[in-house]
């Protein structure tokens, strides 16, 4: 009897040990480092559409088909804008002269009240807005010759934006 009691007590203890829920916890950290970024994107191509031989065509910065770059960066920070501009557009072996570049910058995405400048290989000093935005428009003039060959003429406008 005494032995049985002892055995029962041991069984009860073991069962208790086996079935009692235990709770534990542990922690890890979740970490992130947020950086200021600088974004320079070509947002809209400079599109002259169709042109006619012997008739020059200009696209103003305020036109719906002017070229547009969108920049974001540190609020109020200085930024230099430098352009690499073609003198000719090409269609195969044919050239089409382009020039008389015009430019404009603004803190918001509208050319109304924008600050005009002449895009060139020399730096133009500008600055991000108080909210870190800058919009840059580019226009120009193409001058097809009277005997300009038909075709699709392409070129590239490159904007280099320097933050320091």
């Amino acid at each position: 009897m005494r032995t049985l009691t002892r055995v029962s007590a041991t069984v009860a203890a073991l069962l208790s040990l086996a079935t009692a829920a235990q709770a534990q916890s542990a922690n890890i950290n979740a970490t992130a480092v947020v950086y200021q970024a600088m974004t320079v994107t070509g947002a809209r191509a400079l599109d002259f559409g169709n042109v006619f031989p012997g008739v020059a065509k200009s696209i103003a910065v305020a036109a719906a088909t002017s070229g547009r770059f969108d920049l974001t960066g540190q609020a109020s920070a200085n930024v230099n804008l430098t352009f690499t501009l073609p003198t000719n557009l090409t269609s195969g072996a044919n050239n089409l002269p382009i020039g008389t570049w015009t430019g404009c910058t603004n803190a918001t995405n509208t050319t109304t009240g924008c600050t005009t400048f002449t895009p060139s290989g020399s730096a133009t000093a500008s600055a991000f807005s108080g909210t870190g935005n800058l919009f840059v428009w580019v226009g120009g003039t193409v001058t097809p010759a009277a005997n300009q060959a038909a075709g699709t003429y392409n070129g590239t406008v490159t904007l280099t934006a320097a933050y320091f």
Binding site: T19, A21, Q22, A23, Q24, S25, A26, N27, I28, N29, A30, T31, A32, V33, V34, Y35, Q36, T131, G132
Partner: peptide
């Protein structure tokens, strides 16, 4: 999901795993 005007710098939080053993 940082906001466009999220303050730069280091951010930290705690993840806790609670485990119940049966």
């Amino acid at each position: 999901s940082p906001a466009a005007n999220q303050a730069t710098g280091s951010y930290r939080g705690t993840v806790t795993l609670n485990v119940t053993f049966f």
